[in-house]
């Protein structure tokens, strides 16, 4: 790679920290871009060093999505803000049934952020993008004064192509459709919570953060007629099913006993008084499909490593109130509502 900056001392990734010059548009910024971002994300489009990436597109439908990542702590078991920023946006592209093509990344760095942390995060993003086979083709860096950011914020944008014949949208759920999840719920949220200092509990649990586009590619190839796909991130399964029910103008009925949960997640939720249905996931999806295709879809999901614990958890029903209801394992029935505010632990 040719370099634009004059050779000087290399960035100190052991003891150095981000300062305001790294966002100032001068040599320090060029050096940071050169020695960190370009080196880590290296690809043809980025190497052109333009303010935009220019590439040819095929005919057909495309999707575009963007997401901001502000997670605290930045590092957690099973991932970090960098891998999350790649996986989360790839997944939003994939939830249209699309094959992701490219990502952009915008960094807002807080003055004082250790360069070692930044490097670790950027390398983790590069590894996630490499693993997913989707390049980061353009980006931006800004630095804000100390106290005006929480270490580091990342925004990523993704684009992708929708295969012909695939028509996936949150408003397509119909009464009679089956509801599937791709695996155990709540792993990410509990893993992150366990790292927050105020909680002080230990767990062997890892975040499920993962890119789902390959799983989705297999699913749409086997069942092009999938009606809805969505990843249950913030607000968990409960929020996602409520969104889909409202968008499609239907109700949903799920069975508690069929919902896959790890015992560690169940245990942590019991301790903290949280409901795992509301806890975030970063490597799971919900699929809604016509009943006659459910079995084939479930088989394809289970054949993929990211879907091996997939399960059929319920049905779409006609309901003017658009309620999501659950048959409890206990034998009763209840509403699974939107979350009011944040989920807070109970007192007694």
């Amino acid at each position: 790679m040719t370099t634009l900056t004059r050779k000087g001392p290399a960035l100190d990734f052991t003891h150095g920290r981000v300062d305001l010059t790294h966002g100032g548009g001068g040599r320090a910024m060029a050096q940071l871009v050169e020695e960190l971002f370009l080196a880590a994300f290296d690809n043809d489009l980025l190497r052109q060093r333009n303010d935009q990436a220019c590439f040819a597109v095929e005919a057909g439908r495309m999707v575009m999505t963007t997401d901001g990542y502000v997670i605290s702590p930045m590092f957690f078991p099973g991932g970090d803000i960098g891998s999350l920023a790649v996986h989360g946006t790839l997944n939003d592209v994939a939830m249209a049934g699309a094959a992701p093509m490219a990502l952009s990344a915008s960094f807002i760095l807080e003055e004082g952020l250790p360069l070692a942390d930044l490097r670790r995060i950027v390398l983790s993003m590069a590894a996630a993008s490499m693993e997913a086979g989707v390049p980061i083709v353009t980006g931006d860096t800004k630095v804000v004064e100390k106290g005006k950011g929480d270490g580091l914020f990342i925004s990523t944008t993704g684009i992708g192509r929708v295969p012909a014949g695939v028509e996936i949208s949150g408003d397509r759920a119909r009464p009679g459709d089956k509801i599937l999840v791709s695996g155990t719920l709540g792993d990410h949220g509990v893993a992150v919570m366990s790292q927050r200092e105020s909680l002080g509990f230990e767990t062997t649990l890892h975040s499920d953060s993962a890119a789902l586009h390959r799983l989705v590619a297999g699913m749409v190839a086997a069942v092009p007629g999938i009606h809805c796909l969505r990843d249950p991130t913030r607000g968990g399964l409960a929020a996602t099913l409520n969104e889909l029910a409202a968008q499609s103008g239907v109700g949903m009925l799920i069975r508690e006993a069929a919902i896959p949960l790890r015992p560690e997640v169940q245990g942590a939720c019991e301790l903290l008084g949280l409901d795992p249905l509301y806890v975030a996931n970063e490597g799971k999806l919900i699929a809604i499909c016509p009943p006659e295709t459910a079995e084939a879809l479930l088989a394809v999901m289970r054949a993929h490593p990211l879907g091996q614990n997939a399960a059929l958890i319920g049905e779409v029903v006609a309901d003017d109130h658009h309620f999501v209801q659950m048959e409890t394992a206990f034998g009763g029935r209840r509403v699974v509502d939107w979350l009011a505010g944040e989920q807070l632990p109970r007192i007694c």
Partner: peptide, 17 residues
């Protein structure tokens, strides 16, 4: 008396039984 019981009754749908 307790909210904990109220919560259990609602969450598990005990009144249905």
């Amino acid at each position: 008396f307790c909210g904990g019981h109220t919560h259990a009754i609602s969450r598990y749908g005990i009144e249905d039984l």
